[in-house]
Simulated scan of single mutants.
Amino acid sequence: MPWGERPRWARWVSVIWIVGFVEGTGAHLLDLISGGLHAYHAWPLPSQVLFHALLVVDLLVAVLVARGLPSGPPLGAAVMVTDLTANYQGNWSGLLHEPLAYVGVTGLLPMTLFGLFVVGTALPLGRAFRGIVRPV
């Protein structure tokens, strides 16, 4: 769906999604540049594979949403649920022992807020991309 045909709210939501997923791509790229293939060596193997895959998948979500393709929102929601699950699993012990260490402008808190935003807006954004406008 072209930008001009999207409802105004869908344009704003799309921009937030694109910025968030491009930022995720950048974060995973920086991890890869600084740590190589072993950047996530302390994480379980499935999480390592996921975090490396997100380098491509986050960018794919951003492109799908930018193009207004209906496959973008469900993929984005699935990515965020999977990413947050892996991050909470890997940080759970630290989160229980020092929860305030995870409150900040980077890390788990903003990822969680963005993930909640993505999951909460995925269905209406997907409907908007299909041209189905339902009153809220």
Rank of each mutant, 00 (worst) to 15 (best):
Met1Thr: 15
Gly4Glu: 09
Gly4Thr: 08
Gly4Met: 01
Glu5Val: 06
Glu5His: 12
Glu5Lys: 14
Pro7Val: 15
Trp9Pro: 03
Trp12Arg: 04
Ser14Gln: 00
Ile18Val: 15
Ile18Asp: 11
Gly20Asn: 01
Gly20Leu: 01
Gly20Phe: 02
Phe21Asp: 05
Phe21Glu: 04
Glu23Trp: 14
Glu23Arg: 07
Gly24Trp: 06
Thr25Tyr: 08
Gly26Gln: 09
Gly26Trp: 14
Ala27Leu: 11
Ala27Thr: 12
His28Met: 02
Leu30Thr: 08
Asp31Met: 04
Leu32Ile: 09
Ile33Lys: 01
Ile33Phe: 12
Gly35Val: 11
Gly35Asn: 10
Gly36Lys: 08
Leu37Thr: 13
Ala42His: 15
Pro44Cys: 03
Ser47His: 07
Val49Ala: 14
Leu50Arg: 09
Phe51Val: 03
Phe51Thr: 06
His52Pro: 01
Ala53Phe: 14
Leu55Met: 09
Val56Gln: 01
Val56Gly: 11
Val56Phe: 15
Val57Met: 00
Asp58Trp: 12
Leu59Gln: 05
Val61Gln: 02
Val61Asp: 03
Leu64Glu: 07
Val65Glu: 04
Ala66His: 02
Ala66Gln: 04
Arg67Asp: 02
Gly68Ala: 10
Gly68Cys: 10
Leu69Cys: 00
Gly72Ala: 08
Pro73Ile: 14
Pro73Arg: 11
Pro74Glu: 05
Leu75Glu: 06
Gly76Gln: 05
Ala77Lys: 02
Ala78Val: 04
Thr82Gln: 07
Thr82Trp: 13
Thr82Lys: 08
Asp83Met: 08
Leu84Pro: 01
Thr85Glu: 04
Ala86Asp: 07
Ala86Thr: 06
Ala86His: 05
Asn87Phe: 03
Asn87Cys: 03
Tyr88Ile: 14
Gln89Glu: 09
Gln89Ile: 09
Gly90Asp: 13
Gly90Gln: 05
Asn91Gln: 14
Trp92Ile: 00
Trp92Asn: 00
Leu95Tyr: 13
Leu95Ala: 07
Leu95Asp: 05
Leu96Gln: 15
Glu98Gly: 00
Glu98Met: 06
Ala101Leu: 06
Ala101Phe: 07
Val105Gln: 11
Thr106Asp: 11
Gly107Asp: 03
Gly107His: 03
Gly107Val: 02
Leu108Glu: 04
Leu109Arg: 10
Pro110Phe: 10
Pro110Tyr: 09
Pro110Gln: 09
Met111Tyr: 03
Leu113Tyr: 15
Leu113Val: 15
Gly115His: 05
Leu116Gly: 08
Gly120Phe: 13
Gly120Ile: 10
Gly120Asp: 12
Leu125Pro: 07
Gly126Gln: 14
Gly126Ala: 14
Gly126Lys: 09
Arg127Asp: 15
Arg127Leu: 15
Ala128Phe: 07
Phe129Met: 11
Arg130Ile: 05
Arg130Gln: 15
Arg130Thr: 08
Val133Asn: 05
Pro135Trp: 11
Pro135Arg: 13
Pro135Thr: 06
Val136Leu: 09
Val136Gly: 09
Val136Phe: 12
Val136Gln: 06
